[in-house]
Design a protein around this nucleic acid. Structure first.
Length: 286
DNA sequence: TACCAGGTCGCTG
DNA sequence: CAGCGACCTGGT
């Protein structure tokens, strides 16, 4: 287990921030996180977080995944007092960070997300993993009767490999609630399969925001918005600013003269995430 | 019943 | 190039 103090992170907030669709609260504040073929559980205890892995794995995988090097306090400080809307959104979304999620998983996930709603997206992703993923054993957390945290083994489903989906074809993608998005998923799976697919993905990782976005736009089913989500959540180009129906509504309601994108150049995506969070959780939070 | 959900495609002017 | 209808599907 790893015990570490982390500022500015709230797993519950991240879980309902609409950037990841497989995070789940198991019980009493124990969060399970599945990223590609990796699994971990985490819980907050006072000022510290407890993670179900060894120190080296935490440093190698999870510290990066949770973007612990990101200075969220610094980002927030850039928002002026006068911007009362964004100030409030930031206050409301305290503890939200932009996770560094798996690129291939983000491609599929945000293709599914288009013209869709979050519960349905979660359902489709889960079924996709159940059908094409692999069952693996991971480590979880459990509170012993003596009140001590201990590690337990837990089975989980990995996110499917591109080849598994490509092989299944359109018929294999039926009954997952994908609707017309099934053909987009099949296309991207074919694109990411095999050695060429591997190369396509690694080239995408090397590219800067402009080139990555342009490359993504060429894919069948990927438009401006999904491309920006993949850039933001799968490539950590935090300058990407996805405009979906919610953000569009916010922009027209609170920024009739235009959102000051230039002011936040290079990290506007982080502020977008607070805006989005506020919009979809404002009713539930009150 | 009609409208909406983290949009994009294909067609038209 | 901009505008616009169609689109799977499940929930109000």
């Amino acid at each position: 287990m790893v015990r570490i103090k982390i500022d500015d992170m709230d797993l519950g907030q991240i879980g309902k921030s609409g950037q990841c669709f497989r995070m789940k609260e198991l019980e009493q504040g124990i969060w399970s996180v599945t990223a590609g073929a990796q699994y971990i559980e985490a819980v907050k205890e006072g000022e510290e977080f407890l993670f179900s892995c060894e120190e080296d794995e935490f440093q190698r995988v999870w510290s990066h995944y949770f973007d612990l090097e990101g200075d969220y306090c610094g980002y927030k400080k850039q928002v002026p007092e006068e911007d009362s809307y964004l100030r409030e959104a930031i206050r409301c979304g305290w503890g939200v960070r932009i996770l560094r999620q798996d690129l291939w998983e983000m491609l599929v996930t945000f293709l599914i997300s288009q013209n869709n709603n979050i519960p349905r997206i979660k359902g489709s992703v889960k079924e996709l993993c159940n059908r094409f993923g692999t069952e693996k054993m991971g480590r979880g957390l459990k509170l012993s009767s003596a009140g001590m945290w201990e590690e337990v083994t837990r089975s989980f489903m990995t996110f499917p490999a591109p080849e598994s989906i490509a092989l299944a074809g359109l018929p294999g993608l039926s009954d997952l609630g994908l609707g017309y998005r099934d053909k987009y998923i099949l296309h991207i799976a074919q694109c990411c399969s095999g050695p060429e697919g591997e190369k396509w993905l690694s080239d995408l990782r090397e590219a800067d925001y402009e080139n990555a976005h342009a490359t993504l736009l060429k894919q069948y089913g990927i438009g401006k918005k999904v491309a920006d989500c993949v850039c933001l959540f799968g490539l950590h180009h935090v300058g990407a600013f996805p405009v979906d129906t919610h953000v569009k509504q916010i922009l027209t309601a609170y920024y009739p003269d235009g959102f000051p994108l230039k002011r936040y150049e290079g990290y506007a995506g982080i502020l977008q995430q607070y805006m989005f969070y506020h919009k979809i959780n404002r009713l539930a939070a009150e």
